[in-house]
C-alpha cells in the first residue's frame, strides 16, 4: 500500500537541522536533534505532551533560541544575526494553536499588515492578494470583520491566510486544530490538505491521523526531546518500531 506520494528524490533540502540542543535553564528540551526536510515535503511531528514538539518547530523560526547545533533554512543559517533571522522569518510562515490573530485589526488588516510593513507592498496590491487568500481558505465574505466575530475554525483559516500572505517557502503548524470544536476541525484540515497538495513544504505538529495518512510524506515521533522514530505514515501507524511509539499510538488510538 505504501506508494510514494510525490517524487522528492531531486528536491533540495530546505531545512537542515544538525545536533540541535535546547535548554530551558537546566532542563534540556531538545537533545541532539538532527534531520532534514526537502522542498515540498510534508512532515508531521507527533509525540506525547511535553516531548518538545513545540519547542522544536519554534526553534525553526527563532521564536526560541537554541544553545548548540545548527539550523539552516534555505541555505541561511539561523544565528544571532538579526538580518538572518528577519530573512528566515519572511520565508517561514507559522500557525499557532491559539490562532493569535491581532484582535484590534480587521481580518483584512491581519492579512495585509505583514505585506505592507515588512514587504512594503502598496496597500491596494496587498488587499487584492489578501482577498485571493481569503477565497482560497473559503471565507472571503469575512474580510471586513474582526477576529472576535469569527468562529474558531474561521479564525484559524484567517491565521493560515495571514501566514501565506508573506509567500513563505515553509509553513509551520503547531497543533492548529487542537483548540477547535470537533465540527470545525475538518474545515481547517481541508485548507491544510489543499496547501500540502499544492507543493508547500510543511512541518506540522498534529495528532490528526487522517490528515497525516492522506498528505504526510513522513511522520516524526518525538519523545523526551529526541526523535525516536521516522517513517512513512503507513509504516508508522501500521508497524511502529519503537516501544514508545507503540505505547503512544495505543494511547491516542484509544484503548
Amino acid at each position: 500500500m505504501s506508494q510514494p506520494r510525490k517524487d522528492l528524490s531531486n528536491a533540495p533540502k530546505i531545512i537542515v537541522v544538525e545536533h540541535l540542543n535546547k535548554f530551558y535553564g537546566m532542563f534540556q528540551a531538545l537533545k541532539d536533534v538532527s534531520l532534514s526536510v526537502q522542498q515540498g515535503e510534508v512532515v508531521v511531528v507527533i509525540g506525547p505532551s511535553g516531548s518538545g514538539k513545540s519547542t522544536f518547530i519554534r526553534c525553526l523560526n527563532r521564536l526560541e533560541e537554541h544553545q548548540s547545533g545548527r539550523i539552516m533554512i534555505d541555505n541561511t543559517e539561523l544565528t544571532n544575526d538579526v538580518r538572518n533571522i528577519d530573512a528566515i522569518r519572511r520565508d517561514v510562515g507559522m500557525v499557532f494553536q491559539s490562532f493569535n490573530l491581532f484582535p484590534h485589526l480587521s481580518v483584512l488588516e491581519n492579512i495585509t499588515i505583514g505585506q505592507i510593513r515588512v514587504k512594503k507592498i502598496v496597500k491596494s496590491e496587498a488587499e487584492k492578494m489578501a482577498m485571493e487568500l481569503l477565497e482560497r481558505v473559503g471565507i472571503p465574505e469575512q474580510a471586513k470583520k474582526f477576529p472576535g466575530q469569527l468562529s474558531g475554525g474561521q479564525q484559524q483559516r484567517v491565521a493560515i491566510a495571514r501566514a501565506l500572505a508573506m509567500k513563505p517557502k515553509i509553513m509551520l503548524f503547531d497543533e492548529p486544530t487542537s483548540a477547535l470544536d470537533p465540527e470545525m476541525i475538518a474545515e481547517v484540515l481541508e485548507v491544510m490538505k489543499e496547501l500540502a497538495k499544492s507543493g508547500m513544504t510543511m512541518v506540522c505538529v498534529t495528532h490528526e491521523m487522517g490528515f497525516a495518512r492522506e498528505v504526510a510524506d513522513r511522520i516524526m515521533f518525538f519523545d523526551h526531546g529526541q526523535i525516536i522514530e521516522q517513517a512513512t505514515p503507513e509504516d508508522f501507524y501500521n508497524n511502529p518500531k519503537s516501544e514508545r511509539a507503540k505505547l503512544f499510538l495505543s494511547q491516542i488510538l484509544g484503548h
Binding site: R90, F102, G114
Partner: peptide, 20 residues
C-alpha cells in the same frame, strides 16, 4: 502570543511594539 505572531510574520521588534 501576540508578540510571537507578529515576529513570526517578520515584523521587527519596534513594529511589533507600536503596531501590535
Amino acid at each position: 502570543g501576540q508578540d510571537e505572531a507578529a515576529r513570526a510574520i517578520g515584523l521587527s521588534a519596534t513594529q511589533t511594539l507600536f503596531l501590535i
